[in-house]
Design a protein around this nucleic acid. Sequence first.
DNA 1: ATTCATTTTTTACGCGCGTAAAGAATTATT
DNA 2: AATAATTCTTTACGCGCGTAAAAAATGAAT
Lengths: 343, 343
Amino acid sequence: MGERKIRNMEEFASISGISRPTVSKYFNDPNSVRASTRARIEAAIDQYDYRPNIYAMNQNRQLTKNIGIVVPYLADPFFGEIVRVIERRCIEAGYSPSLFSSHGAPEQERDILDTLRSLKPAGVLLAPLGRLSDKTAIEAFCRDVPTVLFDSNIDGMGEAFVGSDNYSFVSQTVEYLSRTGEPPSFFEMKHPANPNANKRRRAYLDMMERLGLEPHVLQIDGSGWAFEDIGRKGAHDILKKKALPTDTILCSNDRLAIGFLSACFEAGYKVGRTHGRDLRVASHDDHPFSRYTCPSLTTAAHDYSSVSGHAVETLFRLIESGGRFQTREETLFAAHLIMRDSA
Amino acid sequence: MGERKIRNMEEFASISGISRPTVSKYFNDPNSVRASTRARIEAAIDQYDYRPNIYAMNQNRQLTKNIGIVVPYLADPFFGEIVRVIERRCIEAGYSPSLFSSHGAPEQERDILDTLRSLKPAGVLLAPLGRLSDKTAIEAFCRDVPTVLFDSNIDGMGEAFVGSDNYSFVSQTVEYLSRTGEPPSFFEMKHPANPNANKRRRAYLDMMERLGLEPHVLQIDGSGWAFEDIGRKGAHDILKKKALPTDTILCSNDRLAIGFLSACFEAGYKVGRTHGRDLRVASHDDHPFSRYTCPSLTTAAHDYSSVSGHAVETLFRLIESGGRFQTREETLFAAHLIMRDSA
DNA sequence: ATTCATTTTTTACGCGCGTAAAGAATTATT
DNA sequence: AATAATTCTTTACGCGCGTAAAAAATGAAT
C-alpha cells in the first residue's frame, strides 16, 4: 500500500503484470476473468490503491453500473428508511446508487428524470409524487430507461411496480376497529397527492359495505406535503363542530394521524382504548414516529423490508433481462396490524 | 423541438452554426460567450434538445461541476429539510449535487468519501457522524477535496465549518426555564454520538453556574441513532425511580424529548406550563415533529435557512478560491426560542 | 504428448469532449 | 475610418478507457 501513484489503467496493468484489456474486463465484471488472474489484480489493487476513472469508464460503456433512486419527499423518515435498505443492496450487488428527492415538487421530479437520463443508468427505482407527477414526462422517461416504480403506482408506467396492498391495510384496521368498538369513520385529505390514498378510501367503503356498516368519510382541506399540519387543522375543525359520526377515527395515513392526535390533545379529547376515553384513533403506514405519539398509534404497518427488497430484486432482474419485461409486473405486500394504545 | 437526434457536440455545433470550441466554452460557463452567441446556442438547445455527454465532459476537466452532500442520517427529517435547501441552491448556481447518507454507520461514511473522491467533485458539504467518524479518513479526504463541514464540527478538518451555536441554544432555554419556574435538570445520552451534545452539556453547566443554580445532569444509556427510543426508556427509568431533582427537564435534543414526552404520557405524568402539571420539558433543535408532540414542545430552533444558506455560500467561495482558505472559517448561527406548551 | 477449449496478450481504433494556439472576424474606441 | 480589444474559428492533440480481432499462452481432457 502506498507505493507510487498510478495514473491510469495502462500503468496499473503493466505494474501488475496483466494486460490492460484483461484489467478492463475485470473491472466490468470481476468474475469474467480466471480466479488466479483475479487474485493477482486484486492484490495489485490493494497494493497500489488504484481505481479506474469512472468518467472514462462510463463514456463508452453501453450500460453503466449506475442505479437511480428517486423518492418524493426525503423529510419523511419513511423514505429515509426505505432508501437505506435499497442503497445497501445496490452496493452489495456492485452498482452505484444515486439518490434524488423531488421534495414534493413536480418540476423537480422532471428535472431529476432529466439528470438521470444523462447519467445513463442501468436502471431506476422511482417512487413518483403521484397525482402531481408529470405523467407524460414519466412515461417518456420509462420508455428510455428501465424503471421499476415503487410505493405509489401509476398505471402502465415502468416495467414493474412494487408496493403495499392498500386493501390489506384497511381491511385489517376496519375489521379490528369494528369488532372491538364503534365502526370507524375515515379521515383523509380531500385532494390527496398520493394514489394510495384513493385506494384506501375505496377499500374502506368496500369493507364497511361488506360488514353491513354505514361508512362515513371525513374529507379535509389542504394541499402539499405538510400532512401533520393538515391533519391537525382538520381535526380541530371537526372537533369544534362536534361533527364526528362515531367515536372511532381511521386516518388514511400516520402523518395525518399524528396531526389528529395532537389536535385531540390540545382540545382535551382523550384518545385510547381504555375506560374513560373519548375517541379511538387508528391509521396506516407504521411511520417511524407512530410509536411515540400520545397515545402510541395503532396502525397497519408496511412490510418495509419486503417492499424495498423486492423492488431491488425486480430491478436487478429487469436489468439482466435487457431492460424490458414481457408484461408489466405488479407486486403488492400485505400489511400487518400493530396494536398500540390509541385504538 | 424534436427535429432529428443529435449525437455529439460536433454535430450540434455544425447544425447550430457555431464552432465546437465555442459551444464547449458555453457549456462550461454560459456567461463566457457573447450574449448574441449565447442566444443562438440556447435557441439550438431548445430546438434540438441536445445535452453534452457528462462523462466525456468530466473526463478531462480539471474540475467538475459536481458537489457532494453527505449527511449522517437521512431518516431524520432535520437533514431532509437541510438537504432540500442545499440542493436547490447548488442547482441554481449551475452545480450538480450528489446526495449521500451515512445512515449512522462509520464504514458507510468511509465508503462515501471513497466514492466521492472518484467523482472528482468541485467541493463537498459534509455533515459527519461525529464521535464515531473515522477521523483519519475524513482528514485525508479533506486534504484532497475542498470540503466544508456543517452541522457537527471536527476540530481542524475541512476548510470551514458552518453550524449552530450550541451555547446560544442552551443559554436561552436555561434562562427562560429558570426565570419562569424551577431550574432545569439536563437530560442526555451518556455517550452521545454527536459533538454538539457535549457542547450543550458544557453550556448547561456554565449557565447554571453563572445563574448561581445547582446543575443536575441525568445521563442515560443507549447508543445508535434511535434517539426517541433511548429517550423514552431513559425517561421511564428515571420516572420510576422518582429520580428527578427538579420538576423541569431540559433535553439535549428534540428527538430525546419526543421519547421523554411519550414516556411521561405513558406513566401518567402531566407535562406543561399550566396549573396542575407535574413536569416541564424543553429541548433543542426545533425538529419538524416537535410541533406535534403532546404537549407541543418548547424548544430552541436552529436557524435552518441561515445554516444551509451560509454553508452553500461558503463552499462556493471556497471553490472560487481554488479550494483553500488562508485560515479555517467557523461560523455559528444563534438559535431562537420557540415557546410552545411543554414548558 | 496431443488436442481442444478457454483465457490472455497484442495491436489498434474510437468515444465525446477539453483545451491550446494561431489566425480571422467581429465589436468597441478614438 | 483606423486601431485596439474582444470573441470566434480552425486545426489538432490528448484524456482514460471500451472494445474488437487475431495471435499466443494456458489449462483440461483424452
